[in-house]
Nucleic acid binder design. Structure first.
Ligand SMILES: [Mn+2]
Ligand SMILES: [Mn+2]
Ligand SMILES: [Mn+2]
Ligand SMILES: [Mn+2]
Lengths: 221, 221
DNA sequence: AACATTTGTTAGATTAATCTAACTTTATAT
DNA sequence: ATATAAAGTTAGATTAATCTAACAAATGTT
């Protein structure tokens, strides 16, 4: 059995690998707020458990078994977030911290029950995919809103960063998942975007924001 | 802030004190499955935090502040058990282990939400009182079924032991909280009781069982 | 009272997870 | 190519939580 600490390392490795192709000791150190020597020694420990491939000075890699462990923790995290939002009435901005703790509960039945009550959801409240019980994830191809061109319509499908501040900002702009966004123009100087959605006409979104919103192109009729 | 480990000691002290009037190092050691020297050193640590009054060779005592901390953890435990049973469909026999873990989640909002969704319940699925947000508990005066006399009726109000095995046994006998039980006779040799309830006529309950069932006398009309 | 048992403490070791300081390797910039 | 900076490792210390062994105090039994 892996400790809570080990679980957090595995999860961080999984996430960082998917964000930037590979993980290094330094990335993990920054992400987890833990000094590099500590990370190195944990990597050796996880290597001994065959959850990580570790070679000095080389990028870190999860083994297949490590990937699966990580995905299953992420499954618990995301099911929890979904349960908190859908069944307990929390806002999407406040569930991450709670899920960060609940994800370590050891009780398959607990998470199976959530899954069942939620009707086996495929995505979490932030649009991220929920791994299945074997740890498999279906990755959807999304675009960043910042990569889209004027005079197109897109559907807001996921957010890239689920920090409380960012999500509160989105709330204040009434930007929520599922929304159809029409792109009017992009300021060449700073990539600020003018968009419309719902009853919001000509809203201005900075690149800080458009780079964190994941969208799908809509077929125009 | 107290660690998960410290929280478990506080909770155990609170429970054992209420069960047998006082707690000793030895009781805690057995209850928590931790050797006595470890308990002694933890008591010194909790004494330094003013959660415990510790004097060598004397019975252990929680300070007021220690009692409150303990009661608040028990509040989280019991709200969790109630939520699992009432809102997630678990049986009362399977919630204790999960609650044992969830009780350590640090998020007042999480437990406030449970409390609200449950409508501010006063008792948990095993009939134990749920402390309020200030850590106050309303103790009800119950009798053990074993203390009752023939030809009376009682209401089953709580169980004294919530081990999975015992609760499964009660399930198999269709003994659940709220039930009205009529006592027919008691075998003088071994205190075995003959009782009726629901559509069960003349069920035999051993003293092992009747000592673990808490009841209220019913006024006969 | 004397002896035995149970309970509790002290001392010292162990393991997990962390740190700092010093050193080494790899990458980057002139 | 050399120097500088960044990334990574090693060694050794620290803290929390646990243990065993040895000893001491309190309790119980003849
Ligand atoms: Mn999250
Ligand atoms: Mn976590
Ligand atoms: Mn319980
Ligand atoms: Mn616990």
């Amino acid at each position: 059995m892996n400790s809570l600490t080990e679980e957090n390392y595995l999860k961080a490795m999984f996430t960082l690998t998917n964000e930037k192709g590979e993980v290094n000791v330094n990335d993990l150190s920054k992400h987890l707020n833990i000094k590099m020597p500590t990370v190195t020694s944990m990597m050796k420990k996880l290597a001994a458990k065959e959850l990580v491939d570790y070679q000095s000075y080389k990028p870190l890699r999860l083994t297949e078994s490590g990937k699966k462990e990580a995905a299953l923790i992420i499954r618990k995290h995301r099911l929890t977030e979904m349960f908190l939002v859908e069944k307990m009435g929390f806002g999407w901005e406040s569930v991450h911290e709670i899920a960060e703790q609940v994800e370590h509960v050891r009780s398959p039945e607990f998470f199976d029950k959530m899954d069942e009550i939620l009707g086996h959801p495929k995505i979490d409240p932030h649009g991220s995919p929920i791994p299945d019980k074997d740890g498999n994830i279906v990755w959807k191809e999304y675009l960043k809103l910042s990569e889209c061109v004027p005079d197109t319509e897109v559907r807001l499908s996921a957010v890239m960063n689920s920090s409380e501040d960012f999500l509160r900002f989105l709330n204040s702009k009434e930007l929520h998942l599922g929304l159809t966004i029409r792109i009017h123009s992009i300021e060449p100087f700073d990539q600020t975007m003018i968009v419309s959605y719902d009853n919001k006409m000509n809203e201005v979104l900075s690149s800080k924001v458009t780079e964190r919103l994941l969208v799908e192109k809509l077929m125009l009729p």
